[in-house]
């Protein structure tokens, strides 16, 4: 639940989602669910020339299982809060 809650708080911020097939998409985080499926708005593909079929896609749903990384905005990371949450999660709380 830690990361589900974390991403919910991040809604509205700009992120870059990198997929396991190397496609990287930047956009505004619109929503997230318990599987960490992600919806992005105002998207643009980082390497657009390599993915011409993505040209007219402006918002999308990404299946959580295909995500490799999410690059997070620096002001969207509260380090102390995360440490506490991770310890609580480890305790099974």
């Amino acid at each position: 639940m830690l990361f589900f809650s974390y991403f919910k708080d991040l809604v509205g911020q700009e992120v870059t989602v990198e997929l396991k097939n190397d496609l990287a998409i930047r956009g505004t985080l619109h929503s997230v669910d318990q599987y960490l499926n992600i919806k992005l708005e105002n998207t643009r593909v980082v390497d657009q020339d390599k993915y011409p079929h993505m040209l007219s896609v402006r918002n999308c749903f990404i299946r959580g299982s295909v995500v490799r990384y999410v690059q997070l905005p620096p002001d969207g990371v509260d380090v102390d809060l995360l440490h506490d949450a991770a310890r609580r999660e480890a305790r099974g709380g």
Partner: peptide
């Protein structure tokens, strides 16, 4: 992998 909405205003 991904489901994207095609913006009909833009060139595909």
């Amino acid at each position: 992998v991904l489901i994207g909405e095609l913006d009909t205003e833009r060139e595909e």
